[in-house]
Design a protein around this nucleic acid. Structure first.
Length: 676
DNA sequence: CCCCGAATAT
DNA sequence: TATATTCGGG
């Protein structure tokens, strides 16, 4: 996207770097404490940087606004009287594409986390040592690189040849920056979405005479909003108009949303197919490890990208840039899972970006969303996800399940038996290790520490093992697969890591957490054989589910209509809602209109006994599914639920009170998202 | 008439 | 490919 190139600076990128790189890098140091500021300045100068200082955040902001090309990097103290360092960080991230390093006397992890989640590329503790400053230029280089990549990408979209030539300029609503930080709002589009931070610009084109509506580019930010809206509404009720309203992005038209929704649904469907395939694989009992590659998460890279490089993008109000995403995409590590391809598996090392890469969805993945796919496969939040959660400063911790022992031990066993060796691509090792340790911890019944605040995150890692464990899953999966002799129509092997995932996610990391279970994802196929439904692809059920929220647990599952029309005909009362904590779970059922709305669900997803939820939670199928659905459910779920299955369904619990904490970020409305 | 979703065009 | 536009229908 464009963005004007920052001239002046050096840049790291290959091209151009004629300047002696780090030397001369323009750094803006901000600290209300004169002494600290002086020290900082001195150190920075020693590093040969060109330093500008100010003791006021406001001033710093103004300076940056005046000429965004004047600085390459910002180092700001966290605690300042006039403006909270985080605020400054946020604004800078929002308005310009300049890496920001936070500085604080406190090394409280919470603060660090906050800084990182707000988009800081680094977080240094005072007293700062020159060693730490010597390499800060790397952040600039990194960002530059991303910018370049971004530009290239966008060039394609935008005009350049072919495509839109005349008139048709693409709009990137809001996005722009996406990768980097928000900055730029460049380009053409008349108005961007709200996000106030915005500013400037506006002029520019629009003009051209042609008045062709600018082509909407569904940037990550936009998509995020879209997903947020969808989640908020619940898939069943997410119709273009409503989504449009929720998104509150004016340039968009209902048609735009409708079109995107169409694609989104397609993605969901594909995902479900993937899941099915996975199931199939499991069912077949293939022992080929390659099938299980999915175990390798690359969280590390993601993590890095996520944290260090990028800002998180949040949903609306402010979107933070998430740099690094691109980079991530290009690296093998970027992929979350090794996938399953149409053939059923993917090659290890193979990049999973689905083809294009222009796809921002892939990028989104790195954002903090919980990867649906992973859920599909086991509902296990992958490392990345966990990391992301951390980053997001969401308070998440693993909470002990009531069934903890059961689950844990079981998991442990599985894990033990099947060490995750996976990994295919380079760079995974660390993750793998992490996972392993994580597992070990579980085995020992030590609770993992994903503690982030008030939220408790349930480690459902086990899920992955489940998948691997064919026997465990076979019942369910077999059913799914066996009956569907016919591959799904779409059947695109989607690498797990493919962008699809992102589509689902709430991408931003802000959600409180929920993870959805995927067990239900089988659905798609079912239509054919199982339910005897029509082949009509329209009838596939992508998934079913609902959101359960008990005082302690929140489970979200997805529900996608069986028939495309169902949305219209059925009106679930509840909606998924993440926000609605009170809801005890609403199940949306599709197709049949007889579904009670607002039902509480409980689902099949999580066996009550396992979770030990009190209150009757009856099985989903028994109570909430429409007849038709029930049939399907039976087909799929027949049999007692296995605890593992349970696990697989990622159940995430969140404490009641866990409200989002960080106000800034918190705002995410969606509970999460992921549908599916 | 409005809106939806699928199909089709670009 | 992704998005826009069209089309049939509720």
């Amino acid at each position: 996207m464009t963005v004007e190139n920052r001239k002046g600076g050096f840049v790291g990128g290959d091209e151009g770097s004629r300047d002696p790189f780090p030397a001369g890098m323009r750094v803006l140091a901000v600290d209300d404490d004169p002494a600290c500021l002086k020290i900082l300045e001195t150190l920075l100068m020693r590093c040969k940087y060109h330093v500008t200082t100010t003791n006021q955040a406001i001033t710093a902001l103004n300076m940056l606004r005046e000429n965004r090309n004047k600085f390459d990097l910002v180092i700001s103290d966290v605690n300042m009287p006039d403006m909270d360092g985080f605020k400054l960080l946020e604004l800078v991230g929002l308005e310009m594409d300049i890496p920001v390093i936070m500085l604080s006397a406190y090394s409280d992890p919470e603060l660090v986390l906050k800084g990182v989640t707000h988009g800081a590329v680094d977080y240094l503790c005072k007293p700062v040592r020159i060693e730490e400053l010597k390499n800060i230029w790397q952040h600039v280089v990194r960002r530059k690189k991303l910018e370049q990549m971004d530009q290239h990408k966008s060039l394609r979209n935008v005009g350049d040849h072919t495509g839109t030539k005349e008139g048709g300029h693409a709009i990137s609503v809001g996005t722009d920056s996406d990768l980097n930080g928000k900055v730029s709002r460049k380009r053409n589009d008349p108005n961007e979405e709200e996000e106030d931070g915005g500013e400037e610009n506006g002029h520019e084109n629009d003009d051209s005479g042609s008045q062709k509506k600018p082509r909407v580019v569904w940037s990550p930010d936009l998509h995020r909003k879209f997903v947020a809206a969808v989640n908020q509404l619940g898939l069943a009720r997410a119709v273009p108009k409503k989504i449009l309203d929720l998104m509150n992005v004016e340039v968009l038209t209902r048609e735009n949303v409708a079109s995107h929704l169409q694609k989104y649904r397609l993605y969901l469907k594909r995902i479900s197919n993937v899941a099915s395939q996975a199931n199939l694989v499991a069912a077949l009992g293939s022992k080929d490890p390659s099938y299980m590659r999915y175990g390798s998460f690359d969280g590390y890279e993601d993590f890095r990208a996520f944290t260090g490089l990028g800002k998180l993008s949040t949903t609306s109000p402010s979107s933070y840039s998430y740099n690094g995403m691109l980079g991530r995409l290009n690296t093998p590590t970027g992929l979350g899972f090794r996938g399953i391809s149409s053939s059923g598996l993917s090659q290890p090392n193979q990049l999973q970006n689905s083809g294009g890469s222009t796809d921002y969805m892939g990028q989104l993945q790195s954002q903090g969303a919980i990867n649906p796919v992973s859920n599909l496969f086991g509902g296990v939040p992958n490392k990345l996800e966990v990391n992301q959660m951390h980053l997001q400063n969401k308070l998440i911790s693993y909470q002990e399940l009531k069934a903890e022992d059961l689950v844990t031990s079981r998991l442990a066993n599985q894990l033990t038996n099947q060490p995750m060796t996976t990994t295919s691509s380079s760079g995974n090792s660390s993750l793998v290790t992490v996972m392993s340790s994580h597992l070990l911890l579980q085995k020992n019944l030590i609770k993992p520490s994903v503690q982030m605040g008030g939220l408790h995150f349930e480690p459902v890692d086990a899920g992955s093992s489940d998948i691997m464990d064919q026997s465990q899953c076979s019942d369910i999966w077999n059913i799914c697969t066996a009956q569907n002799s016919k591959p799904s129509p779409i059947n695109i092997p989607m690498p797990l890591s493919s962008p699809l995932n992102n589509f689902l996610l709430p991408l931003n990391g802000n959600f409180p957490l929920s993870i959805s279970s995927v067990r239900d994802s089988h659905i798609d196929f079912s239509s054919n054989a199982v339910s005897g439904c029509n082949d009509d692809s329209r009838h596939d059920i992508a998934c079913q589910g609902g959101l359960i929220s008990t005082s302690n647990y929140t489970v979200q599952t997805v529900d996608y209509g069986q028939s495309s029309r169902f949305a219209q005909s059925v009106t679930p009362a509840g909606g998924f809602v993440g926000q609605d904590v009170d809801h005890q779970g609403t199940a949306f059922c599709n197709s049949s209109s007889d579904i009670p709305s607002g039902v509480q669900l409980s689902p099949a997803v999580i066996p009550a006994d396992v979770l030990n939820l009190k209150g009757g939670i009856s099985s989903f199928e028994d109570n909430y599914l429409p007849e038709q659905s029930k049939i399907q459910e039976d087909e799929f779920f027949r049999g007692p639920f296995e605890p593992l299955d349970e696990l697989m369904n990622a159940v995430i619990k969140r404490e009641h009170n866990d409200v989002l904490l960080d106000g800034d970020f918190g705002f995410d409305p969606y509970p999460l998202g992921s549908c599916i």
